[in-house]
Design a protein around this nucleic acid. Structure first.
Lengths: 157, 157
DNA sequence: GCTAGAATGTAATATCGTAACACTTATTTG
DNA sequence: CAAATAAGTGTTACGATATTACATTCTAGC
C-alpha cells in the first residue's frame, strides 16, 4: 500500500520510469517523450489526475495543448498496463506494478485523491463465482473503494 | 440474476414501481411525477441508460427538457436506493431490491447493456480486509464487471 | 390562507472525451 | 539507401456528461 506510506519519492519516480522503460523495450513499445512525460506526471503524485490536469502540465511545458494529446498518451499507458483509469473519478493513476494485464482493486481517498492498489485476486474470485452462476462471462472488472486514507483520517475527523 | 432471464416484464415494472411507492410512503419521500416516470423509464429496460437518454424520453413526454431535471430525479433515486449509478458507463439502472443502503456488484453486458445485480457480500469482505491492512477506511465501493450476458454470448460469439 | 421548505424551470457553463484529417517521424522492406 | 508503410503528433471541431445559480412553483404543516 505504497501510496499511503512516506518514502523517497524522487527515487521512487526514477526507478519506476526506468522499470517502464525496460518493459517498453522488451515489448517493443515506443515510450515517446510525451508518453514518458505523462507517465512522470502521474508518478509525481500517487494521486488520481484528470486528463485535463495532465494536459495543463503538458501545455505549460510546451508539449501539446489539445485534449487528444493527453488522451492518446493516457490511453497508451492504460492499454499497456503502465497506468490505470479510475472509472469513478474519470481520472488516471500510474500503475504500481508495471506488469501487463493486471487489474487491481483501488483504494481512493476522497479527501486527497491518493490511490493505492490492492490485490484483487480474492475479490475477483468471488465475483467470478457469482457471475458463472448467472451464465455471465466476465471480461473486465472495475473494483474501486472510496474512503479516507490514514493521513486524512487524522487530518479530517 | 433477474435481468438475464425472460419474464413478464409488464408485471415486473408494475410491481416494482408499487414497491418503491410503498417504500417512499413509509420513509416520507416524495415520489413526484418526474421521479416516478424516471424510475419507470429505468425499469422498462433492465438496461443501463445515460442521463441524456432519460432526459430525451422525458422531453418527448413534455416532462422537462433541461439536464438538471433528469439529474435531479436520478440523484433522488440513487440517494434513496431506488436506482444505482454505473460508474464505468456514466449510466443509471433501476435497483432490483429497493431496500435502502445496499451496494451490490454489477454484471454489465458490453453488447446489450443489460445489467444484473449480484451479491457483493463476499467481494466486499475481501476488499474490507485488504483495506484494513492499509489503514484505509472504506466508505463506498463500486464493483462493476463487464462482459457478455448469456444471450449475447450466443448472438455474438 | 400563510409560510417554510421542497421541487421544478431555465440559462449558462464547466468538465470529460472523441472523430476526422493533415502532417511528421520512425520502421520496414525492396 | 530510398521508397513504402506504419506509427505518432498537431489541430479543429464537436459530442457527451454534469453542475451552478437563480427564479418560480408546489406542498405540507400550521
Amino acid at each position: 500500500m505504497l501510496a499511503f506510506e512516506t518514502h523517497d519519492h524522487q527515487a521512487c519516480v526514477k526507478t519506476r520510469v526506468a522499470a517502464v522503460e525496460m518493459q517498453a523495450r522488451a515489448r517493443k513499445l515506443r515510450l515517446t517523450p510525451i508518453r514518458r512525460r505523462v507517465l512522470e506526471i502521474l508518478l509525481e503524485d500517487h494521486r488520481a489526475l484528470g486528463a485535463y490536469d495532465v494536459l495543463a502540465k503538458l501545455e505549460a511545458e510546451g508539449l501539446g495543448a489539445h485534449p487528444p494529446v493527453a488522451y492518446r498518451a493516457l490511453d497508451f499507458l492504460v492499454e499497456h498496463g503502465f497506468a490505470h483509469k479510475l472509472e469513478r473519478r474519470n481520472a488516471f493513476v500510474a500503475c504500481d506494478h508495471p506488469d501487463a494485464g493486471h487489474r487491481p482493486a483501488f483504494l481512493i481517498c476522497r479527501d486527497c485523491a491518493a490511490v493505492a492498489e490492492a490485490d484483487s485476486a480474492g475479490v475477483a474470485r468471488a465475483l467470478a463465482q457469482t457471475a458463472s452462476g448467472a451464465g455471465f462471462e466476465i471480461e473486465t472488472a472495475a473494483i474501486e473503494a472510496e474512503g479516507l486514507c490514514p493521513a486524512c483520517q487524522i487530518a479530517a475527523p
